[in-house]
Simulated scan of single mutants.
Amino acid sequence: MQHDQHAARYVSKLSNKLRRRIDAFSSRDHMSGSQGKVLHFLLAQRGDIFQKDIEEEYSLRPSTASELLKSMERNGLIRREALPGDARKKRIIVSDKAQCYRQEVMADIENLEEELTRGISAEDMAVFFRVIRRMLSNLS
C-alpha cells in the first residue's frame, strides 16, 4: 500500500479539517464548536436525551461528555434535570437562550454537510456510510 493510501491517515485529515471548520462556528462568542455540534444534536432530537446519548453520538468518554455539558450549563445553553424516581439520571433540557440559536446552529451544520458532500452521488455516499460504519465497528 502506498504511503498516501492509508485509511487512518485520510480519516484523521478529514477529522482535523471538520474540527477546525466546526470550531470556526464558535467565533460568534456564544459557544465553542463542540458545544454547537452537541446543541445541533440536541435540537434535532425528539424525546428525552441523556449524557449517555451524547457519549454514544460523539464517541466521548463519560468524563469528557460531563465536562462539555457542564460548560454548556455554565454558558446557559442547557440545564440538567433529574428524572422523578431516579436522581442519577439527568435529562438534558435545551434552554430558551439556546433555542434562540436554533436556526444559526442548524444552518451552520447543514451548510457544512452540503459543502462536504458536494459533487458526491447518492450511490457513493451509500458506499461511504457502509464503509465508515464497518470501520467504526472494526474498532469497537
Rank of each mutant, 00 (worst) to 15 (best):
D4T: 12
D4Y: 08
H6Q: 11
A7C: 14
L14P: 00
N16A: 15
N16S: 11
K17D: 12
L18T: 02
L18S: 07
A24Y: 07
A24E: 12
F25L: 12
S26K: 03
S27K: 08
D29M: 15
H30E: 12
H30I: 15
G33E: 06
G33S: 08
G33T: 07
Q35W: 00
Q35V: 03
Q35K: 00
G36S: 10
K37A: 15
K37N: 06
K37D: 12
K37S: 15
V38T: 04
V38R: 00
H40M: 09
H40I: 06
L42P: 04
L43P: 00
R46T: 12
R46C: 07
G47V: 05
F50H: 07
F50Y: 11
F50T: 00
Q51R: 11
K52L: 15
K52Q: 14
D53L: 04
E56V: 00
E57Y: 02
E57C: 02
S59H: 00
R61D: 09
P62V: 06
P62Q: 09
S63A: 13
T64P: 05
S66R: 01
S66V: 02
S66D: 04
E67Q: 05
E67V: 04
L68G: 01
L69D: 02
S71Y: 01
S71W: 04
G76R: 00
G76L: 12
I78Q: 01
R80W: 04
E81G: 12
A82W: 01
L83Q: 14
P84A: 14
D86V: 14
A87G: 07
R88V: 09
K89D: 05
K90H: 10
K90A: 06
R91V: 15
R91C: 11
I93L: 12
V94S: 05
D96P: 01
K97Q: 11
A98N: 00
Q99C: 14
Q99S: 08
C100K: 14
Y101S: 03
R102H: 12
R102Q: 09
V105H: 05
V105Y: 02
M106C: 13
E110M: 08
N111V: 04
N111P: 01
E114G: 11
E115T: 09
G119K: 05
G119D: 07
I120L: 11
I120W: 06
I120Q: 11
S121V: 10
S121I: 08
A122W: 06
E123A: 15
M125Y: 01
M125V: 07
M125T: 03
V127D: 13
F129K: 14
F129R: 11
R130L: 14
V131M: 03
I132N: 06
R133I: 07
R134K: 15
M135E: 04
L136E: 02
L136M: 08
S137I: 01
